[in-house]
Write a protein that binds this DNA or RNA. Sequence first.
DNA 1: ACCGCGCGGTACAACGTTGTACCAAGAAAC
DNA 2: GTTTCTTGGTACAACGTTGTACCGCGCGGT
Lengths: 333, 333
Amino acid sequence: MAATLSDVAARAGVSIKTVSNVVNGTGRVGAETRDRVERVIEELGYRPNVSARNLRHGRSGVIALAVPEIGNPYFAELAELVVKAAEGYGWTVLIDQTDADPDRERLVLQGIRSHLIDGLLFVPGRLSADDFAARTDTTPMVLLGERLTRVADRVAIDSYAAARAATEHLIDLGRTRIAAIGATASGDAVSRGRYEGYHDALVAAGHRPSARLVVPQRRWRHESGVEAVGRLLALSRPPDALFCSNDLLAHGALRALHDHGVRVPDDIAVVGIDDIAESRFSRPSLTSVAPDKRHIAETAVGLLADRLKGSFSSAPREFIAGFHLEVRESTEG
Amino acid sequence: MAATLSDVAARAGVSIKTVSNVVNGTGRVGAETRDRVERVIEELGYRPNVSARNLRHGRSGVIALAVPEIGNPYFAELAELVVKAAEGYGWTVLIDQTDADPDRERLVLQGIRSHLIDGLLFVPGRLSADDFAARTDTTPMVLLGERLTRVADRVAIDSYAAARAATEHLIDLGRTRIAAIGATASGDAVSRGRYEGYHDALVAAGHRPSARLVVPQRRWRHESGVEAVGRLLALSRPPDALFCSNDLLAHGALRALHDHGVRVPDDIAVVGIDDIAESRFSRPSLTSVAPDKRHIAETAVGLLADRLKGSFSSAPREFIAGFHLEVRESTEG
DNA sequence: ACCGCGCGGTACAACGTTGTACCAAGAAAC
DNA sequence: GTTTCTTGGTACAACGTTGTACCGCGCGGT
């Protein structure tokens, strides 16, 4: 069994509290006593019991990062940065995987892990504003993603602006039949934002949006991109550009385009969003909207830290992280 | 403040223990009382304090997964499966990122999180057998990766066999100048295993291994693959095949080969290990050794469960997960 | 009328830690 | 030589939960 304070105390011939003081550097302890206690601690391999500590002062040193799927490189890359940022505050990060399942997301929101975690970084998938309004759990939370309602601190890129920038890039290339893969007007907030950015960019440029060129996909992964391209190429008048809601869709699309003998970017140009590592090395490399992931991670963790430092009740704050367009072979040849 | 058992008890006019019984379904509680208590629980939004529970019976319901970097798709995909498998046991997974830094790995090994976690799944990077021998922490641990010493349960594919299979595939294609990127005889256990598998396959086929064709890389990521190819193509007699120690290296290599105008697989064939999602959709798609990740994740979590169920002292067990070669365009053109 | 028993429930201690309050002994101040 | 202060340390309670032991009540059997 693991040694406890009282084991150490007994062996060192002092009170429990004195050992506690040595461990925490609190109170006053004589040099001689301190040495003795420290030796015994070493000897017994004593480690403080985090649960007891946590119980005592209501903090666990753990924050949760809830994402739809950690296997998605965007979330994985983000998680890596979140873990690094959290380290700076002495926090450990726990991963909650929601599978973008509303029920699971609701559980996370309602504090399934409360008491275990000090704070929550939440990347919502399919939850509605109502779900957030109904939240009763009081664990500090920072949202990563679209605004649903002003319920919590939020950090994100502006999906609308990102989608619009990507689409405008395609328009600037002179493309006229620009398809959209993934996003849909009737989807969740992210999906809607990306759809509207795409749509408005077309309208602003005097293009006439066509419903036939919009292929919504529930899961934004390689396979869905492949499938969407199959449908788009079957059209009597196929597109000359693809705006993909994320990079995975885009890579699936690139693959499918090649398999159909379509040249990229000559025949069809492709852009994505997320700028995952794969996009820098694929062939062709993928033009993508690159969010400042580091900034997002650090800001989010920082906001959580603020909340934990006492400003529990202040109004929700929003931070819109920057992004830029990484132009690569899939659009510039 | 969050409601506690005693808040609920006071409001329902019963004892704390009765509420506890209702929550846990223990003891005997009358139907009427149960209803009343449940209503109050709902009303107050009571949630059990995990820390207190944990303190009480010494379990936290949290296991840690320590990986070099969660941003690496192989580890991310594995993490996804581990999280899913852990769910079946009611466990939450906490991510520890070691950056393959020996000091950080040693901390994990020594139980930096002990008391917070019930068990540890550890993917070691650079630790030596001595480090494992020196472990004093008693948290149940399952190693994912190469055998260092028989100190703990272990689940992994056989790196040696995997590397050998990959290399033999290249030999079967008639390639004679097969280079290796990543692995080295002087690296950590995984690196060594992969190097030896490569080396022995060559020797067994009557090839003469050449040190010039071996390009060790510390970090197995896209960039390193690019760099390695640059060096290999500068040789007076460049290779006609590449065995890459993981898929990321391979994808970097594919990209660099294309940039140098080398045709794959005609001029140079390429294989990797890990079979990440990217490999199925890249152009060319990548031939890769595919470990059974689901099996690895489920077995590892299962072993941990066993240990927690009492068999603390039984001898370390080993499970070698299967793998198969996914032959794709990068070798079969 | 008494015993035994199942039912519904309570009281208490303990998990390991730390904050608060206190205390003994020696030193410094008058 | 009493008072006051500092130093080094202790005792106790409390955080929220749950396992163990116990208790009172009504009911059926003798």
